[in-house]
């Protein structure tokens, strides 16, 4: 079966004060129908930029796709016209944003905002769109959907707003749902509810989900495959279970071990967390012909400073871009 979405050697450049910087540098991946693929990394590593590029929403005049292809349904989205992209957005690919309070319009009711999507994309009448909006609110388990549809965003709790966002994203039954840190602003019990909801909806509509997050726990629970991004490049790629049990890139390893996890065998002793020193390099250092993680890496050698690591493919499907991947 052909993959639903194919990204080939994507390079996105941003124009900054210091010149042109590649925020996404040679990224390739595929997404199959019905699967969840997760992007992991710190802020400033290019996760959200990838999502925006897929949606054709790169910031105007600043960001552009320099090379590469995004193939969806045999169509290259990087070449598509604005009108065509507008058709695809919402209908085929839609997105849930991080902050439900700032991404909903405060002066329209939730019902109006969901109905707007249906009227614009499916040409429904005002009444039919409203009825469908109420149905959708029910599907995302908002109690009393008929009454709540005429609520404004400020009248809802954070979890309910995020549900309304999900309802809006799912209005036209997209084939791909991009969730950009959908639960970062929410409490853990609400996060658990949202994750359950997303899993159920995926089962019902067989949509593929791209989950962008920095929480390894969330990845382990939600996704089948993951891509670890660092400084605009893919650091590691492969099945989630295998990467978590045996990461092949020092950055992945750091990301897993630097977070205190709740484990089943808890002891009195609490060793210090293994930290990844330093921070993500700034945009102007992106795109150099060396390993960009070298300055923070414990395994660094001269080779890492001299040239960009090539892909190392392992028999279990894991791919790591590191010169020392085999030794880890």
């Amino acid at each position: 079966m052909a993959p639903l979405l194919e990204v080939e050697n994507l390079r996105i450049e941003l124009t900054t004060r210091d010149g042109i910087a590649p925020v996404i540098d040679d990224l390739s991946f595929t997404l199959n129908a019905g699967e969840t693929l997760s992007f992991v990394g710190e802020s400033g590593c290019g996760k959200s930029m990838t999502a925006l590029a897929l949606m054709g929403l790169l910031p105007d005049k600043i960001g552009r796709v320099a090379s590469g292809k995004i193939i969806f349904n045999n169509e290259d989205l990087t070449q598509a016209s604005d009108a065509r992209l507008r058709e695809i957005r919402g209908n085929d690919i839609s997105m849930i944003f991080q902050e439900p309070m700032t991404s909903l319009n405060p002066v329209f009711t939730i019902g109006e905002q969901i109905a707007e999507v249906l009227r614009a994309h499916q040409g429904l009448s005002r009444a039919a769109a409203w009825a469908k909006a109420v149905e959708l609110l029910d599907a995302v388990r908002i109690p009393n959907p008929k009454g709540r549809a005429s609520d404004y965003p400020f009248q809802m709790s954070g979890g309910q707003r995020q549900r309304a966002m999900i309802a809006m994203a799912l209005a036209c039954e997209p084939k791909i749902l991009i969730a950009d840190e959908p639960t970062t602003a929410l409490d853990v019990t609400v996060q658990a509810q949202i994750f359950d909801l997303l899993t159920d909806l995926r089962r019902q509509t067989s949509a593929a989900i791209i989950l962008i997050t920095h929480d390894m726990g969330a990845v382990a629970e939600m996704a089948e495959r993951m891509i670890v991004m660092y400084a605009g490049r893919k650091a590691e790629f492969g099945p989630v279970d295998q990467i978590i049990t045996h990461p092949r890139h020092p950055y992945t390893k750091g990301l897993i071990s630097c977070v205190p996890h709740i484990v089943s065998d808890m002891t009195e002793e609490r060793p210090d967390l293994i930290e990844v020193p330093g921070i993500v390099p700034s945009l102007k250092d992106f795109g150099q012909d060396r390993c960009l993680f070298a300055s923070r890496c414990a395994y660094v050698t001269d080779k890492c400073q001299a040239s960009r690591p090539s892909k190392k493919l392992f028999s279990n499907g894991q791919i790591a871009d590191c010169w020392h991947a085999e030794d880890l």
Binding site: V188, T189, Q191, A192, F195, D196, D215, M216, G217, A218, A220, E221, M222, D241, I244, T245, I256, H261, I262, V263, S264
Partner: peptide, 18 residues
């Protein structure tokens, strides 16, 4: 609250029912 925390530990995940 504890059961809602996503975890990377597979035994913990199998053990805890949300």
């Amino acid at each position: 609250l504890l059961s809602a925390v996503p975890t990377v530990d597979r035994t913990q995940r199998a053990k805890q029912k949300r």
